[in-house]
Design a protein around this nucleic acid. Structure first.
Lengths: 195, 195
DNA sequence: CATTTCTGCCAACAGCGTTGACAGTTGTGT
DNA sequence: ACACAACTGTCAACGCTGTTGGCAGAAATG
């Protein structure tokens, strides 16, 4: 879906790959550990053993590098699949356990940069593509799209609150307990209110 | 609760008020219109007709000025009061309608700066004080504190998704419709699951 | 073999939040 | 009345930021 970030412009010397890879690796580590603002381009460059200007040259801007590095699509894919009657629990289970909570910390980094328009629209598009759209098609009863949208809202809230504490869980509670209780609320939106 | 931001250090010339007021007014307008990062201290100073260094002198830092300007306590006070059997709807109604959605836009500004530790802890403390703590005392059944915490989580999610669109509502839906549907999910956490 | 597009490197830009230095003003304690 | 302390506002400067331009060389295409 996303290209490598380097635009081929015709004939001539082809772009290198290992320098980009080094920058991307360093950026992923730093953006995962500190906030967007707290990570400087010069810092990423130093970690990658590269000149700061090269980072911009290769990726266009700090924000573009950030967006290319911190993607959440992989963790969100197929989130709305599974039997409807147990989907609330299933969604939460996948979010909280898959890849050791990697989805949460990546999401946390994105939320920290939410004021940047491109980050914001990426996050919205991601929720739409992986949760709202597929779920709206499967729901039955009234207000299907709104209910699907609000499922994403609840997921947003949970991810928002879990920012930075992927292990300890909410309010010191273990993940399993949060999951069981919150699943009921999520399921209240999934179930047909007239049925 | 919060003092004026100027610390009296003993005898001597007392602090002025109208300059602080001018800075605070300019800051409130700018922080409400643009994101934390997009508003510079120099810009606030210019709007207040004041030297940039005075802004820092008076308020300590840009972040302190921000926190003193954008407070959400007023809008959150008493949020968890009212009959338990209808509290889900009541909470949402108060959040979405009080003061024309001023709570939402202020919250939006705070979320935009969520990566700053002091902003983060203020937001957490605010939710605790006005929602989690008073609600946990009133709930019945198992997992009272966790359920109260998750009510705040759902509220967070809604405020998060409503950022920047206090009028149009979610997904273009009018506020009333969102309210009615989401209230069910919120109420699912408030109701005693064993009852 | 000319052309084109990369490479990497250095210096510089404008803007940022913040601080130091300094002179002037206004209050309090004795 | 007088010293002192804490404020006032003004100016220049600090170190940092993301980003850009210039430049010489390398590697591909036609």
């Amino acid at each position: 879906m996303t290209d490598s970030g380097v635009v081929r412009r015709g004939r001539g010397r082809p772009p290198s790959t290992h320098v980009q890879e080094a920058i991307r690796t360093a950026a992923a580590r730093l953006f995962g550990a500190k906030s967007y603002d707290a990570v400087s381009v010069r810092e990423v460059a130093a970690a990658a053993g590269v000149d700061p200007s090269l980072v911009i040259r290769h990726f266009g801007s700090k924000e573009a590098l950030f967006l290319q590095t911190m993607t959440v699509d992989e963790a969100f894919r197929g989130l709305a699949e599974g039997p409807l009657e147990d989907l609330g629990r299933l969604i939460l289970e996948r979010l909280l356990t898959v890849r050791g909570g990697a989805a949460i910390s990546t999401y946390a980094a994105l939320i920290g940069a939410i004021d940047r328009p491109e980050v914001r629209s990426y996050l919205e598009a991601s929720a739409d593509r992986h949760v709202v759209a597929p779920l709206a098609e499967r729901l039955t009863g009234p207000d299907r799209e709104l209910r699907a949208r609000l499922v994403a809202t609840q997921v947003n809230g949970l991810l928002f609150d879990l920012r930075g504490r992927p292990d300890t869980g909410l309010a010191g509670r273990p993940t399993a307990e949060v999951l069981a209780v919150y699943a009921r609320a999520l399921q209240a939106l999934i179930d047909d209110p007239t049925g």
